[in-house]
């Protein structure tokens, strides 16, 4: 360290003398390199000014005294910059440590929230959920019930980042702990509403669409707690219809009531559940319209559901220049028989 500084100090002096003599750009370029080496070794600004003063005095032993004082004055003024520089250095290191901790937390969240996509004959399900930042505030969950029905939850925490992600773990464990006889969509939303209302700060809300699908009959029952509407695609009519129900977002009021609706699904029909990260994609400054999303889905409808959701995601990822504004979740269920 000492040696490094001495060597560079000599070089600095030489370059300074050369520059005063020639005003040559080469000297300036070389001092740039010296300066970078100083930064790399955490040399503080006041030390460089001190080095400058010393070099100047060696080159001009009879330097004007008032000029010398002015340089001392500058040195004094730089002390606080040196401190600020050191502080930023430490904060930067802390930030790197914090980032790596968050990425560990994000991995853990993924493990905690893992759910298995049910493989049921006659049903083709595809799902994708991509966080905008490291932690995902969207959540989907599958439940395979003993009566053969499939429960599907699609949820979005209003609010982003780590608090949202932590909140989702609570939702998952609540869902898992409900006894099976309560598995009708409005009952589930009612129970979750109470859990959220009691346990989550009043500034955090969760929207959810809960659907229950009976593969044998093709019946789909669903309830929404203020969630982004889903869509039903009728293959015969080649038409999308919005599906939603009345119901407050989870966590607002203890006595919220949830409505239930039903649909009968035929072969090649699709049910699409999503979060607002899909509908609020941007094309430049403009928010895209829902019919554009549905168009893209249709464009890939010859693929399997999983390939479909992946292609749709890629499409909007590209459209947004690979920078998601919000967590993006899309689920497609298609009846294949």
């Amino acid at each position: 360290m000492e040696n490094f500084f001495k060597e560079r100090a000599e070089e600095y002096k030489k370059l300074l003398a050369e520059y005063i003599e020639t005003q040559d750009e080469k000297a300036l370029y070389e001092v740039e390199l010296v300066s970078k080496a100083f930064i790399k070794h955490n040399i503080l600004p006041e030390e460089i000014i001190n080095l400058h003063i010393k070099a100047l005095k060696e080159i001009y032993p009879d330097l004007v005294v008032s000029y010398e004082h002015s340089m001392d004055f500058l040195l004094e003024a730089m002390i606080s910059y040196g401190l600020a520089h050191q502080e930023i250095q430490v904060l930067r290191e802390q930030q790197i440590a914090l980032k790596s901790e968050i990425s560990i937390a994000a991995e853990m969240q993924q493990k905690l929230l893992r759910t298995n996509k049910p493989e049921v004959p006659g049903v083709d399900i595809g799902v994708i959920s991509v966080p905008a930042n490291q932690m995902n505030g969207d959540y989907y969950n599958f439940l395979l019930n003993t009566d053969g029905s499939i429960g599907i939850a699609m949820a979005d925490v209003i609010g982003k980042g780590i608090p949202a992600a932590l909140c989702m773990s609570m939702i998952k464990y609540s869902l898992d702990s409900f006894p099976e006889e309560t598995m009708r969509p409005p009952v589930i939303l009612n129970n979750l509403n109470r859990v959220v209302e009691r346990n989550v700060e009043s500034n955090m809300f969760i929207t959810m669409m809960y659907a229950q699908y009976f593969p044998n009959s093709g019946r789909l029952a669903f309830s929404s707690a203020g969630h982004e509407p889903g869509y039903y695609y009728n293959a015969v009519e080649d038409r999308f219809t919005e599906i939603t129900t009345r119901g407050l977002v989870l966590g607002v009021s203890e006595d919220a009531e949830y409505e239930e609706k039903e649909l009968l699904i035929n072969k090649d029909d699709m049910v699409i559940l999503l979060t607002d990260g899909v509908t609020e994609c941007r094309d430049g400054e403009r928010f895209i319209e829902i019919h554009e999303v549905l168009e893209v889905i249709k464009q890939y409808s010859h693929l399997s559901s999983q390939e479909m959701v992946e292609q749709v995601y890629k499409h909007f990822e590209r459209l947004q220049d690979f920078k998601l504004q919000d967590d993006f979740s899309l689920l497609i269920l298609r009846k294949t028989v």
């Binding site: 002390i79 606080s80 401190l83 600020a84 502080e87 904060l91 802390q94």
Partner: peptide
């Protein structure tokens, strides 16, 4: 802690003294 005082423009604070 770093960042406690400097961000408010109050100066280097005690961490600054420790560094100096």
């Amino acid at each position: 802690k770093d960042g406690y005082t400097t961000s408010g423009g109050l100066g280097a604070g005690l961490p600054g003294v420790k560094r100096l």
